[in-house]
């Protein structure tokens, strides 16, 4: 087997008319994109709709794709834009101030934190709940990091936030997740 083509090469090949390249690209990223949307939007119907819409827009914009842009960033940028549109029509999320209260709970010594004794099933359940309860911006940053594998700069590029802001959102997200384990 020859060396595998990168995402960027596949995308350029698809822009040139190579459908197999798109299928390979799609297989690689369908799960990541779907989970990002599902966990961000929390509703399967919304995730389905935006999943299809994201790929549709990517197909439409394939000729504008340049290899300098990392494909994952390009794809998740499109998805994020759609998510922002969707959220804009919904009620505003809770403010970050709530997280400050959470931090106080986390000042307890590590040994006393109850996550140590939770079963794995319970840990997963709590993580899922914690993700759902995260404010939108924190959840997006968290998912772009963990699901998309993006760094601070890439997350900042997608969300339009500065590096420090992204770091702050991740910090708050982590704090809230840990607070869920502690409760």
């Amino acid at each position: 087997m020859g060396s595998e083509k990168t995402d960027e090469e596949l995308m350029l090949a698809y822009a040139g008319g190579d459908l197999l390249a798109f299928e390979m690209l799609y297989r690689r990223h369908r799960g990541t994109l779907y989970r990002f949307l599902l966990r961000t939007l929390r509703h399967r119907a919304d995730a389905d709709e935006l999943f299809q819409d994201t790929w549709s827009r990517l197909v439409a914009a394939r000729e504008r794709y340049r290899a300098e842009a990392k494909f994952t960033t390009f794809l998740l940028q499109i998805a994020h834009n759609l998510v922002v549109d969707r959220f804009r029509r919904l009620k505003p999320q809770a403010s970050d101030e709530e997280a400050e209260a959470v931090f106080r709970q986390l000042d307890a010594p590590e040994g006393e934190q109850p996550e140590r004794v939770l079963t794995e099933f319970e840990q997963r359940r709590r993580l899922q709940i914690a993700l759902e309860e995260l404010p939108e911006e924190q959840r997006v940053a968290f998912l772009l990091r963990i699901e998309g594998g993006l760094g601070l700069d890439e997350i900042g590029e997608i969300t339009g936030a500065g590096r420090e802001t992204v770091k702050s959102r991740l910090r708050y997200a982590l704090a809230r997740i840990r607070a869920r384990f502690a409760s």
């Binding site: 369908r30 989970r35 549709s56 993580l127 963990i146």
Partner: peptide, 30 residues
């Protein structure tokens, strides 16, 4: 460790009808 825990969450995948729709659209465009 949070990342490890996250990866133990259910690995949701898009339904097949979405796969078909996306691939069809990509093929049509080409």
């Amino acid at each position: 460790e949070i990342g490890d825990l996250y990866r133990r969450l259910p690995r949701y995948e898009p339904p097949r009808r979405l796969d078909r729709a996306v691939l069809n659209e990509a093929a049509r465009a080409v």
